[in-house]
């Protein structure tokens, strides 16, 4: 019982902190919108060889980008908790490490789901017509993607000593994962060796799954994308859990 209330408390804290930081909320929404408008317009005549225009094509990719930054950021934010001492307060409470990890993960995911949902509601900007079915199948997908990515952030945090490593993560993990994912161009056009790298990037499957659900068209079968995303999430939870339990 107190484990559930512990998960709830930790979840609540993440959400409160997010909602309270207006600057973070606004910048986390503005960035993807700039991308869509500027990138989408600049390359609007770029033929991607599918039955949708370029702006529609990159829209699911941009939503995934928002998920990627926010989720990994939330996961990695444990470093700040550690650095500012708050983590000790949670660790000394009579709740299991697993509950703490879950609370963090669900909290981080909630924040990114809120953000991605707002973006999806704004999809009319690029001319996408939403309907109830689209929303219904997209929400669980963004939840799945963000849980995996938040857990990845938590796993990374276990390897970092202080917050200095954060820029490193952005440059060496988030950006490559985003650029290789085919969010901005179809990976079919890449040379074979690069395409193979793209295929081991879990974000690729997130982008493809969202293309399937939002645009109704994708290059990879949705079953494959779902499977990979699910396995990715489970692996990250396990790795994050082991690291978290080992670290004090």
């Amino acid at each position: 019982m107190s484990e559930i209330s512990a998960i709830y408390v930790i979840w609540l804290r993440e959400v409160k902190r997010y909602v309270r930081e207006k600057a973070r909320v606004i910048s986390s929404l503005a960035m993807p919108i700039f991308w869509i408008i500027i990138f989408g317009s600049g390359f609007s005549r770029f033929n991607i060889g599918m039955n949708v225009g370029y702006r529609e094509f990159i829209f699911p990719g941009i939503v995934t980008m928002a998920l990627l930054f926010t989720s990994i950021g939330s996961g990695v934010s444990v470093i700040w908790d550690r650095e500012f001492g708050f983590l000790k307060e949670i660790l000394v409470a009579p709740v299991s490490r697993t509950s703490i990890l879950f609370g963090k993960m669900i909290g981080g995911s909630t924040v990114s789901v809120i953000q991605a949902s707002i973006l999806i509601l704004l999809s009319f900007i690029v001319g996408i017509k939403l309907n109830f079915l689209i929303i219904l199948r997209t929400l669980p997908l963004i939840l799945l993607i963000s849980m995996g990515l938040t857990a990845l952030g938590l796993s990374i945090a276990n390897f970092l000593e202080g917050h200095e490593g954060f820029q490193l993560i952005v440059n060496f993990i988030i950006m490559p994962m985003f650029l290789l994912s085919g969010a901005l161009f179809p990976i079919e056009g890449l040379p074979a060796w690069l395409r193979n790298i793209s295929l081991i990037d879990p974000v690729t499957y997130g982008v493809e799954a969202l293309r399937w659900s939002i645009l109704g068209t994708s290059n990879l079968p949705i079953g494959l994308s779902l499977g990979v995303l699910f396995i990715f999430m489970i692996c990250m939870v396990i790795i994050g859990g082991i690291g978290f339990n080992r670290k004090k």
Binding site: R13, R17, R20, F86, E89
Partner: peptide
Amino acid sequence: SIGIVFQDPSLDDRL
């Protein structure tokens, strides 16, 4: 059974 006040600050100052 215990309560503790740590040597270093451990509050969440955004709350």
